[in-house]
Design a protein around this nucleic acid. Structure first.
Lengths: 229, 229
DNA sequence: AGCGCGAAGATTGTCAGACAATCTGACATT
DNA sequence: AATGTCAGATTGTCTGACAATCTTCGCGCT
């Protein structure tokens, strides 16, 4: 008996999706937003969604409050919920905040655990192989941003990672608006490898400077694309 | 007519609470939690709250989802919502995250606007006068944490400030659990003034080191008090 | 003709009541 | 002792409804 306790949990790999209806509705709406099916500013009518998904209105309402809480949509009293519209200022602010979080991650490289560093390597690897495999634009975004999240992971702080993920959600929302316009933003993507190389050489200041430049570039690219719409 | 425009807005101080029922319920629950009326781990029964506040159960449900989104409560499927229990690890993580955000604020001091610096001064002033006025423990906490938020405000990033406010909510939750135990944590509170003095002398590194020490102290104090319960 | 204004329709905010699914704990069973 | 079963409690979800508010459109007035 004691032996069983000291081993890994017997069924540790098993994982049951506990999908409440509200969660599934929220997930479906998220997908539709990121997929670009729902343009920014589109009103999310409760009855229409309820009928369309075959669920009741209160359920939809709860899912909508979740989305609003995540910042994917905005609610105006008596006027309902609509897909959030990313402003240029928001994008700038998101990039400034990212710089703080990712910068903290980069500075934590020397004290980070091996596992956390390995995570940076693996997310970078997945990103690059996605590029080589000519993956879809959305998948590339996903991998790219996952790499940046893994940078924050170097801090070892779950909360900082959660914050970064929130920021990333906003970025994905903005990118979904400009999807069709710029599909070639991933050309110089391998420059991320240079960042990791600097880290491995313990050139933290260099890596930080690199990050500053990278985020500044990303900012102007997104803002430009956004202003065109 | 033009003259009226250039003045302060005529009724600028007026502020109408756009209080939907859900908001009011959520606010009442927040108050009860911070006030210490609801111990951590207390289950928040929907029917009981609905009956007690004279609103319907769906309304309470929505308010609860909001609280869960804020991290003030946790929801377990089919088991309901309960007041979140702050773990020692959480407190440590919150302090680590605070260090990143507030550290970024401190480093932004040289480039911050005059208004942002003035805000730091005023929150500090309000904190100190609250101490002199022998204000309630909760009010002291409020002012103290407002000062730390104003530090993050130096970055000029609304999102970073919002993140810090989320962290502060978690701290207030933890402090609500140890309220009765340590009422004298504000003794050395004037040390905050020293931090501001370092900033004014443009001794950013010194201020940063000071902040590191301050947050480390706060962390051990809260964790100790928490472990006693 | 242009413009304010009121009524109809649409949508949200909130409520009441109901039912199935699930959890908890006690009890019976093997 | 472990397992199966049952009653009570609580949540998750649905249906239907109504008041408050917003939007729109047509109407009458200047």
């Amino acid at each position: 008996m004691g032996q069983a306790r000291t081993e890994q949990l017997p069924f540790g790999t098993l994982h049951l999706e506990h999908a409440s209806t509200v969660d599934r509705v929220a997930e479906e709406l998220r997908r539709a937003i990121f997929e670009g099916e729902l343009e920014s500013g589109t009103p999310l009518r409760e009855v229409a969604i309820a009928a369309s998904l075959g669920v009741s209105r209160p359920t939809v309402r709860e899912a909508l409050t979740v989305l609003v809480g995540e910042g994917l949509a905005t609610r105006e009293p008596n006027r309902g919920v609509a897909v959030a519209t990313p402003e240029a200022d928001s994008v700038r602010d998101v990039c400034a905040a990212r710089l703080v979080l990712e910068g903290a991650g980069v500075r934590s490289w020397p004290t980070a655990s091996d596992e956390q560093r390995a995570r940076v390597h693996s997310t970078l690897g997945e990103y690059i192989s996605a590029i080589d495999a000519n993956a879809s634009y959305q998948e590339l975004n996903e991998r790219h941003l996952a790499f940046h999240v893994s940078l924050v992971g170097l801090t070892g702080s779950p909360r900082l990672v959660a914050m970064q993920e929130n920021l990333v959600v906003e970025l994905k929302l903005a990118l979904a608006q400009v999807d069709r316009i710029r599909r070639n933003a991933h050309d110089q993507a391998r420059s991320h490898a240079a960042l990791v190389r600097l880290l491995e050489e313990d050139d933290i200041d260099g890596a930080h400077a690199f990050l500053v430049q990278h985020l500044a570039d990303a900012e102007v690219q997104i803002v430009e694309a956004l202003d065109l719409t």
